[in-house]
Amino acid sequence: MAPAASKLRAEAGLQALPRRALAQYLRLLRLYPVLTKAATSAMLSALGNFLAQIFEQQQKKENCSQKLDVIGPLRYAIYGFFFTGPLSHHFYLFLEHWIPPEVPLAGVKRLLLDRLLFAPAFLLVFFLVMNFLEGRDAAAFAAKMRRGFWPALQMNWRVWTPVQFININYVPLQFRVLFANLVALFWYTYLASLRK
């Protein structure tokens, strides 16, 4: 009887784990919003790069254990922590303040501001920071910009426009960075393919 009761308690504890994790995340989000979003962005960005590398190797039919770039997830974590999390946090706050929900066509105005100003600037920062973290020079940056910026921006507009419409207009403010980071797991697969 005791082993069965112990097993039931363990299963109940496992079922409560997501609730406890969510409660802890919400507490940290309330106490340290920028730091929490930065840390979450770092972890999800690193995971996104790791998954992108695995996906690329599977596409090339390579052995997944041989050529993984262990520094790649670190670079993405740095970018997520210092840029994605804080910049996105402040941008979403700016949108709420500058274009409150009661403004006529607020959703469309927010989306246009995001797509036409923030997205190109954010993508430029991504290419610039990654170039720096890879230890490459200005010529390499210019070449990557010529080769990859416009295709990446066009794909960003196609992929992220509906995502950002939902995010900006329907996701609660405190969860917008998290929502975008979860979608970005797939986006990093695309960006990784452009960075080669």
Rank of each mutant, 00 (worst) to 15 (best):
A39N: 08
A42S: 03
P33G: 13
P101G: 05
H97T: 08
A142N: 00
F132K: 15
L74I: 13
V125K: 08
Q66M: 04
T84N: 13
M145F: 12
F132R: 15
M43L: 11
L133W: 05
P100N: 08
F165A: 14
F83E: 05
L51H: 02
R110M: 04
G148C: 11
L74K: 14
A121H: 12
F82K: 03
P101Y: 10
Y79G: 02
L112D: 00
E102I: 04
T36D: 01
L128Q: 13
L68R: 14
N131Y: 03
L105T: 08
G135L: 11
Q58I: 15
Q59V: 08
M43Q: 08
W98G: 01
S65Y: 15
F83A: 06
T84A: 12
E134M: 15
K67T: 05
L87M: 15
S45H: 06
L51Q: 07
V70L: 13
V103H: 09
E134N: 12
A106Y: 03
L93C: 13
A139G: 03
R146F: 07
L44C: 12
A52P: 06
P151F: 12
Q154I: 06
A140R: 15
H89D: 11
K37A: 05
I54E: 07
L74W: 15
L93G: 10
A142Y: 03
K67I: 07
K37P: 02
N131A: 03
L68G: 12
M155E: 14
P86C: 04
F132M: 10
F122T: 02
R146K: 15
V34M: 01
L113C: 07
F118C: 10
V108W: 07
A46F: 00
G72P: 06
A42W: 03
L95K: 00
Y92C: 05
F141T: 09
E56L: 10
T40W: 07
S88W: 09
E102P: 00
D114V: 08
E62I: 14
F132D: 07
S41C: 03
R146V: 10
A119C: 12
L44R: 02
R136M: 07
V159G: 01
Y76H: 10
L74S: 05
G107S: 09
P104R: 02
V163M: 06
G85K: 08
M130L: 11
A38P: 00
L113G: 06
I99Y: 00
Q58K: 13
P101L: 05
Q154C: 06
L44G: 06
A119L: 01
L111K: 12
D69S: 06
N156Y: 13
R75N: 04
G80S: 00
P100S: 01
I166R: 07
W98P: 01
D114Q: 06
